[in-house]
Design a protein around this nucleic acid. Sequence first.
DNA 1: CCGGATCCGGTTAGATACTG
DNA 2: CAGTATCTAACCGGATCCGG
Lengths: 232, 232
Amino acid sequence: MAEGSYNQFCPVAMAAEILCTRWTIVLLRELVAGSTRFNELRRGVPRMSPALLSKRLKDLEAAGIVARSRLAGDPALYEYTLTSAGKDLGQVVFAIGEWGQKWVTTESSLGKLDPNLLMWDMRRNINTKPLPQRRSTIQVIFSDLQEARRNWWLIVEPGADVDLCSVDPGFDVDLYLVTDLRTMTEIWMGYTTVAQTKSAGRLVITGNRQLEANLQTWLGLSPFAQVEKSVA
Amino acid sequence: MAEGSYNQFCPVAMAAEILCTRWTIVLLRELVAGSTRFNELRRGVPRMSPALLSKRLKDLEAAGIVARSRLAGDPALYEYTLTSAGKDLGQVVFAIGEWGQKWVTTESSLGKLDPNLLMWDMRRNINTKPLPQRRSTIQVIFSDLQEARRNWWLIVEPGADVDLCSVDPGFDVDLYLVTDLRTMTEIWMGYTTVAQTKSAGRLVITGNRQLEANLQTWLGLSPFAQVEKSVA
DNA sequence: CCGGATCCGGTTAGATACTG
DNA sequence: CAGTATCTAACCGGATCCGG
C-alpha cells in the first residue's frame, strides 16, 4: 500500500490521488493546451520549480497520462505528449476551469495579473483564419508597465504558429494596441469587450483598418470567456 | 499575494488552488453525497486526521463552498452544508470520478478494499422504493474477513434513512448475502453483476424470495458503475 | 541553450493523544 | 460530538549547479 494513498477504492479518490497534487492540474492545462517541450511547459507554469516539474512529468508518465519521447528532428531533445487517458483529462480540466470562471470573483483573478502568462495564452489562441495571407505584426503596449514588460509583438505567419516576442523583432507593425494590463486581461477573460473598452478610452487601436475591424474575431478569447459568472 | 498561490489569473489555476490540496476532493465527494456532520464526514474519510478535516472545512467555508451552522434540533451540534458554489462542484467531482472509472485499472482499485467504506457507500445508495412497506433487515457476511469486520446489517425502514450496523441489532433477518469482500466490491463498482457472481458461486443469497428477486434493483450501485472502462 | 539534478530551509500532512 | 495539541515525517520552493 503506497504511503501517500487515500486507500479508497472509489474512482474519485483513485483519480484525485494522481491529479490533486500541487501544480498537477495547472501543468495538465498546459499539456491539454498543446505545450510539449520541457521549457515550453516551464513558460506556462513559471513559478513551478524545474525539479517539481520533472517529478510531476515522471508521475504522470507512470500513471499513463503522459508519454515522453525523443523529438524526431533532434534526438537530444524530448517531448511530452498526452496519451489517450491524458487527452481524456481535458474534460476534467475544463470542468474545473468552468467552475472557476463561474465562482471565483473577478477581483480575485485580476489581483494576479501577469503580462507574460497573458501574452503566452493569447498567442496560442489567435485565430489565424480571418487574418491576411501575409505576415502580420501586432504590437501590444501595456501603458502601465515598466519598460521591460511594456512591449510585446505577435507575429502571425499564415500556416505557422504565432510567434511571441518581448524584444522588437524589427518588422513593420501592422496594428498597435495600447492599453493597460488589467483591461487587456479583462477582455481576454470575457469580462468586457473590445468595443466597450475602446469607447471608454481604455483601449486605443491604430494601424491597419482591416485588422482593427475584426480584432474581436481573430483575437481568440480564453476558453472560459463564454462561461457566465455567478458572482461578481 | 498569498504564499501558497499559483499566481495565475487563469480560472483553472484559481480553482485548483482551492480544490487540489490533499483530501479536499475526497471530502467534497462526501459532502456532495450528502454527509453533513463532522463525524459523518470522518466516517467517509477515515484516514484523514480530524485536525486536517477541521482545517479543510474552514478553508472551504472561507472559499464560499461550505456553510457551517448549528443544527436546528440541538444547538450544541453543527452541520456543514454546500452553498450554491459548493453544489456546483458536483460536476467537477463527477468528471474526476468518471475519468477514474474509465482509466484506473480494476486491479488498482481492488487493491484497496475496505468493508467499512463499501458498506457506508452502499447504505446511502440503497433504493428504498422497490422494498416492502415494512422494516427489512439485510445481513451481509464477508466470508473472507475476520470476526470483527465480517458481519454487517442494513436496516431499511420505509420513509427513513437506511441504518448500518456492525453489531447485531437483534432483528429477524429478511435476507442474507454471503460473499467475499472483493466480489461485493466488484458488484458495487459495476465490474460484474449479481447474476454472474451468483451463478459462479461467489455470492450466496438466502431468505425472502421477493427481496432476492429484485436485489439488483434496490441495491443501488456506485454512481460510476455505468461508466464504461477503457482499461482492464 | 536544453533538460534536468542537488541541496537546504520552510510548510504541510500524518499519528496519536487529549479536551470541553 | 466536535474538534485541539503536539510531535515527527514527508513534501515543496528557491537557488544553484551540471552534463550534453
